[in-house]
């Protein structure tokens, strides 16, 4: 029974667009050869060659891809849970973005108001038990799981340059932004995100995690830098966002 399920799954990988592309490519090769060697017609040969190019292009393009607008909607609506959790615990402090653990992406949110999160607290949070309500340095806090798939972060290498990683995920893969620029200084990174295409209208989430692009950017930075990252400031102007983050070093 398990092997028949596997066969069904593997057949789905050869989807319709691949079959159409291959068919078009094969037809193009045969038609162009026939036109060139037998009919001796250059225009018909060109038609065959253009069919070949189109066929290969169709094969290369992912079939049945979910429209990006749907993906953006999924991400946007999945923040409802985050908003509810933050409301429930009356969390108001800025979160600390932590490197993923066990392929799970989460942030640490202190619950106690005006709690000064030092670097050592942030690094201890990296080792704290992964529960929604956890404890770091004897103080309660929240581990909020972000609705960001680990597969998206893993598209960039740990240790890659921040601007390159942010551009690859936010601009090229998710298409949430039109462009992004990052400037690094000693322990800080300032990011300018232009042309944001999605926004989450949850006030608590925005206050604690930042806007949606900022939140994803924070997760990416903590993943590639393998350090806790805290959002210092965020300013929005229309569809442009400027956010500054601080890297919390272990001995800081």
């Amino acid at each position: 029974m398990n092997s028949s399920r596997k066969d069904k799954h593997s057949n789905k990988n050869i989807d319709r667009s691949t079959i159409v592309g291959l068919g078009l490519a094969v037809m193009g090769v045969l038609f162009s050869e026939f036109s060139y060697f037998f009919i001796k017609s250059i225009p018909l040969t060109a038609v065959g060659l253009s069919s070949l190019i189109l066929g290969i292009v169709i094969t290369m393009i992912p079939g049945n891809s979910i429209p990006t607008s749907y993906v953006r909607s999924f991400i946007k609506e999945s923040y409802v849970n985050v908003e509810e959790i933050l409301e429930q615990f009356d969390a108001k402090e800025r979160c600390i973005f932590l490197p993923p653990r066990d392929r799970r992406i989460f942030v640490y949110v202190p619950i106690i108001p005006n709690q000064n999160c030092t670097n050592s607290v942030a690094w201890k949070a990296m080792e704290a038990p992964i529960h929604v309500l956890t404890e770091v340095d004897g103080k309660p806090g929240l581990m909020v799981f972000l609705p960001i798939p680990y597969e998206i972060l893993s598209k960039v290498d740990q240790g890659s340059m921040p601007e390159e990683a942010l551009n690859h995920i936010l601009v090229e893969q998710l298409e949430i932004l039109e462009s992004i620029k990052a400037i690094e200084s000693t322990n800080k990174i300032a990011i300018k995100m232009s042309g944001s295409r999605v926004e989450v209208e949850f006030p608590r989430t925005k206050k604690v995690l930042g806007s949606l692009p900022t939140c994803i950017a924070g997760s990416i930075l903590s993943y590639i830098l393998k350090k806790p990252i805290i959002l210092l400031k965020e300013e929005s102007s229309g569809r442009d966002i400027i956010a500054s983050f601080e890297m919390l070093n272990k001995n800081g």
């Binding site: 250059i42 225009p43 040969t45 060109a46 060659l49 253009s50 190019i53």
Partner: peptide, 12 residues
């Protein structure tokens, strides 16, 4: 009435 294949390919 273009009959040069390289012209077709260049434009493609």
């Amino acid at each position: 009435n273009e009959n040069r294949l390289n012209v077709y390919m260049s434009l493609f």
